[in-house]
Amino acid sequence: LVRYRTISKIPQITLNFVDLKGDPFLASPTSDREIIAPKIKERTHNVTEKVTQVLSLGADVLPEYKLQAPRIHRWTILHYSPFKAVWDWLILLLVIYTAVFTPYSAAFLLKETEEGPPATECGYACQPLAVVDLIVDIMFIVDILINFRTTYVNANEEVVSHPGRIAVHYFKGWFLIDMVAAIPFDLLIFGSGSEELIGLLKTARLLRLVRVARKLDRYSEYGAAVLFLLMCTFALIAHWLACIWYAIGNMEQPHMDSRIGWLHNLGDQIGKPYNSSGLGGPSIKDKYVTALYFTFSSLTSVGFGNVSPNTNSEKIFSICVMLIGSLMYASIFGNVSAIIQRLYSGTARYHTQMLRVREFIRFHQIPNPLRQRLEEYFQHAWSYTNGIDMNAVLKGFPECLQADICLHLNRSLLQHCKPFRGATKGCLRALAMKFKTTHAPPGDTLVHAGDLLTALYFISRGSIEILRGDVVVAILGKNDIFGEPLNLYARPGKSNGDVRALTYCDLHKIHR
């Protein structure tokens, strides 16, 4: 019993810090008490220290592992850092350059016999395009090294910054494609005289377009951006097909006994025919423009016929181009109408809503002055909100995010209106959640004399007048207030005048 009563005193000691020596009952000389009392004092002292730490809000209350900052290894790049964003855009520009100039170089340097010394005699450094290609190869190699040090988000939505895990993730992902696209074939085969082989191998750079397509997928929600990307894709495919079309004609031209190829026909049409040795002929500019003209006309199913396939190889390629053109029509131009419709969806919704308003007016036989006010209010409210119901949009977000959005939407009023000066951010967040926005066209009466005042109004834009009878008592403008002081009276009061809008007004109100 003594032991039980001794232990039962522990909660009292913990909360009230009572010393055991003052209790005459606990001072009985028993061996059990002498053993338990020192333990009680020690526990009391420890609990006292913990309570003191909690009340003082000291940093040592938290466990040590929670006080440590997340460790980022040296030379690790955050995937959302500004440097990584700028670097990704730079790589994107280099990939676009590669997609345009690599097929052009591979096709127009394929057994090209233009006048001038061969590239091997001039030297590697004197070729501007080769120098640019070398810079692109170096940048792609540097990009691989950067990807080995860039964080990523795993399946659990955690940012991984450990170098080993980053390397394994990159090896399992895009490393092989990036490595093949970054191989400097110019340096590996330079001086061997195989410019045709170098041009063909350099087309491996186009593998990076797969990554670019995935990154550009984030802009699919913007109709104008999608339309622009589709047109660029169409032009890029036409450019690639033009390079292939020229390569076919250029390879067949020296081996044909009869002059029936499209390059021969082009030379005869523009007065620059090929001679018996295969030299001469149109310039590279004429060849490229004509090839691009043929691919565009074939892809769009126009086909004027002034550039036509004559050999079997050219006919087979033309059939493939027609098939590609039909697929592009289905996948690209078939979506253009939907994209344009999405661009004008706001206008369509406006006309639909206006039609419903006019049908309501016609069905209920609203008189002319009231009908005009109804239409003007709808037009003004639509121009202010673009038909978007803010309350319906915010309803799907958590309250903390709703408060931040409301604070942002009402920031101008909260910053410049005098009653809100000096208020804490928590108070402003709470008030912003209570605001209701209303609009009024010129001549609209917001409050009639004798109406119950259940709200306090803040003028965000425009001006109003307060009338008693036919006498203008006051004219209020931006950041002015009218209405009933909230919670100042037990019952809502009545208006002693009319409140009429002089201009288009936007008002925020808080109800009782």
Rank of each mutant, 00 (worst) to 15 (best):
H351E: 03
Q127E: 04
L263W: 01
A338G: 03
Y377N: 13
I366E: 02
V336C: 01
G303L: 01
F378N: 05
M139L: 14
Q402D: 01
S412R: 10
V289Q: 01
A69S: 07
P441F: 09
A381W: 14
R74I: 03
A125I: 15
A225R: 05
I237F: 05
W240M: 03
F420C: 01
P442R: 06
L78Q: 08
V393M: 04
A204Q: 01
L279Q: 15
P70R: 05
F171M: 14
M256K: 15
L67S: 03
A432D: 03
R358Q: 07
L206K: 01
G303T: 03
I324R: 01
R358W: 02
K272W: 01
V302D: 01
G271R: 01
S277E: 12
H239S: 01
F378V: 11
A392M: 08
S345T: 15
G443P: 01
V226H: 03
P282Q: 01
G334V: 04
E115L: 14
I135H: 01
L201P: 03
P441M: 09
Y344W: 05
T385R: 06
P103N: 01
V136T: 06
S331E: 01
A348V: 13
S301T: 15
S337T: 11
H408G: 02
T113M: 03
I405S: 02
I166Q: 01
A155D: 10
S308D: 01
P398V: 02
S383H: 01
R429W: 01
I91N: 07
V142T: 05
I183P: 01
S277Q: 09
L145Y: 01
G191V: 03
V302E: 01
N154L: 05
A247Y: 13
R218P: 03
R429I: 04
I270Q: 03
R373K: 13
V160K: 01
D137R: 10
Q372N: 06
V210P: 10
S276D: 14
S192Q: 11
I332D: 02
Q127P: 06
G123S: 05
R71H: 08
E252V: 01
G116K: 09
Y104T: 01
F171D: 01
S192L: 05
Y329L: 15
Y377M: 05
L327G: 03
V307H: 01
P117N: 14
I388G: 03
L327K: 01
A182M: 09
V132Q: 01
G426I: 01
C417Q: 10
P309D: 01
R208S: 13
C417D: 06
L176V: 12
L216S: 04
M322K: 02
K272S: 01
K287T: 01
L187A: 09
F101K: 07
T437C: 07
T113N: 14
M433Y: 03
E114N: 06
P163N: 03
V136N: 15
W89E: 01
E221T: 06
L109E: 01
